[in-house]
Structure formats: C-alpha cells, structure tokens
C-alpha cells in the first residue's frame, strides 16, 4: 500500500522560539485510520495545521497524493478535509448555508442532493434551516464534520473530534469514521483519548514534545510493547513469597492473597505452566486465576514517561 500523505523531516519553530515539530517523518497510507496520540501541547494540531496550509512549516516537505502542499496547494487542499478542534462557526448562517459556503470554497459547484444526504447522515436534516448559534455543542461538532466532508475529500483530518462530546455522539462519530473509511476516505485523527484510538484506529502514532515517538499497527504495538499479567488468587493468605517461587518475578498483594506475575506474551515459554505447578508443589491452594493485557493507555503513558 502506498502513502496518500507523505511527511518528510517536517519541523516547525514558532516566532517565540518554541519548537512545535521536530523533524517528523511519517507516511499515511491510502484508506487507513491513523490516530495520533499525545498529551496537550505535543504538536498534534501543529502537524495537522501544517499539512492543511494553516501553519507554515520551518523545514521539511509534505506531499498529498504525490503533490507538494506548497507548490501544488490547490490540488492538495482540494483532497483534504479538516475538522478543527475548536467549535469555530459563524453565528447567523443556517446549517445548509454554511455547508454550501464550504463546498464553494473548495471550488465545487452546488450539490443540493449531496448536502441533503450528508445532513441526513449526520442527523442534521431537521436542523438544516437553523441558525448555527442556536445549535448545541454536539450539533456544532456535526456541522463542522459536514463542512469538512462536503467537498468530498479523500483525506479527512479530525483534530480532537470527540473533545467535550457525550458518549452517544462519540459512538456516532466512531461509526461515521468507519463508514467513511469503507468509502475509501483516509482518516487522520488526533486525540488524547486512548480509548478512541484503541476503538477505531488501524495504526497509532505517539507524539510528545514535537517528536513522533513511534508509529505502528495498533495490534502490533500492543503486542510489542504490551505486557500481560497473571493474577493468582490464593485460598489462604501468606505472609511472604515461598523461596521455591523465587525463580519467577512475583508480587504479593498487601492482604497476602494475590500473587501477580508479569510476563511477555511474545515469548514461547511464558513460564505460566511451571509457575502454576510450583505454586501447587509449595502447598498453596488456588482460589482463582485471571490474566490482563496492558491497554494502549498503559503503553502510551509508559512511552511518554520514558521521554520526559
């Protein structure tokens, strides 16, 4: 699969000296959903804004579908749709008017049927004649998505799309993102909600302090960096870990009833079977066993902490 967006050695230093992007290189593939994770101020919005033409890069290049974003800005921008983080909308225009405005800005002739379908898809059809200022925050977010999609882009940038929206709308948006991907739209999503990336992304990139720490397939990332833990619940509490179990790195809970064993699931021999035998040989009676996989959040926190 080739890249629809190719970012090469991109850096951005603002006038006040703050370096928001540090030599970022990234290929975004056709039709994928990639989530860029990072804490506030990590550089996610700067990265998106640079690709969309809102921020000038200090150095580096970006191509969209093979076209340079500076030299061929007309082509690249017509391929891109952007949903900004802030609810930036006019006040007195109606929902339909603002969508018509956006479509025209991108050089497309009016398409009432397409706008009607889009409004229906976004559950905005019954609000089509409402003034924007009369809409709720969630509705405004939908309008912004509509404005970004109305010129039929091939790449959609969603900058913190579910910030401050309720659970229902968040799920609606995730469903919409999946539908868009099925229609061939590439989605680039920035978020600091790990569950969002975990739920919908194919690949995850982690940004912190303007650096792209890693990019990998979500599952591969979880497998590569994720740890598994087995928690063995004992029938009777113990005061210390028996000497025969010193071969395994175990933690004993404060109440003495749980032994936690952390292991790498990628290893051929995880040591689980031999540990369970040794526990039995040590005369300890098992009450329950459970295993947990570390989440993307654990991985993310781990990565960011290491870099601070």
């Amino acid at each position: 699969m080739s890249a629809i967006v190719s970012i090469s050695n991109l850096s951005k230093t603002y006038a006040d000296g703050h370096q928001a992007l540090k030599n970022i290189s990234l290929d975004i593939e056709y039709g994928e959903i990639i989530a860029l994770l990072g804490p506030n101020g990590a550089g996610k919005t700067t990265l998106i804004s640079t690709i969309c033409g809102i921020v000038n890069a200090s150095s580096g290049t970006v191509t969209v579908d093979g076209y340079d974003i500076v030299e061929d800005y007309r082509v690249t921008r017509s391929l891109i749709g952007l949903v900004p983080q802030e609810l930036t909308l006019g006040s007195f225009d109606t929902v339909t008017e603002t969508l018509c405005f956006s479509r025209g800005l991108f050089g497309k002739k009016p398409a009432p049927a397409l706008i009607e379908q889009l409004l229906k898809d976004l559950s905005l059809w019954n609000k089509k004649d409402n003034e924007l200022m009369s809409l709720s925050g969630g509705m405004k977010r939908r309008v912004l998505i509509g404005k970004a999609l109305v010129h039929e882009p091939r790449v959609l940038f969603l900058d913190e799309p579910t910030a401050g929206v309720d659970v229902e709308l968040r799920k609606d948006m995730w469903a919409l993102v999946r539908r868009l991907r099925e229609s061939g739209v590439t989605i680039v999503l920035t978020t600091h909600y790990i569950e969002e990336a975990e739920e919908i992304a194919d690949r995850v990139g982690v940004i912190n302090n303007g650096e792209l720490l890693l990019v990998d397939d979500k599952q591969a990332l979880m497998q590569k960096l994720g740890k598994k833990q087995m928690v063995v619940e004992l029938k009777d509490a113990i005061s210390e870990i028996p000497h025969v179990l010193s071969e395994w790195v175990l933690e004993l809970s404060t109440d003495g009833q749980q032994l936690t064993y952390t292991y790498d699931p990628r290893n051929l021999h995880t040591g689980i079977a031999s540990l369970l035998r040794a526990i039995s040989d040590a005369g300890l009676l098992l009450k329950d066993i459970q295993t947990t996989q570390s989440s993307l959040e654990d991985i993310f926190v781990d990565l960011v902490k290491k870099k601070i």
Binding site: I54, T76, R77, T88, L89, K147
Partner: peptide, 14 residues
C-alpha cells in the same frame, strides 16, 4: 476573530 478563517486558509484558493 471567531477562528472561521481556518476554512479559507485551508481551501484551494489563491
């Protein structure tokens, strides 16, 4: 002032 300028700046317009 309202921030809606982002749309014009990101549109294929000279």
């Amino acid at each position: 002032f309202t921030g809606t300028i982002y749309e014009v700046m990101s549109a294929p317009i000279s």
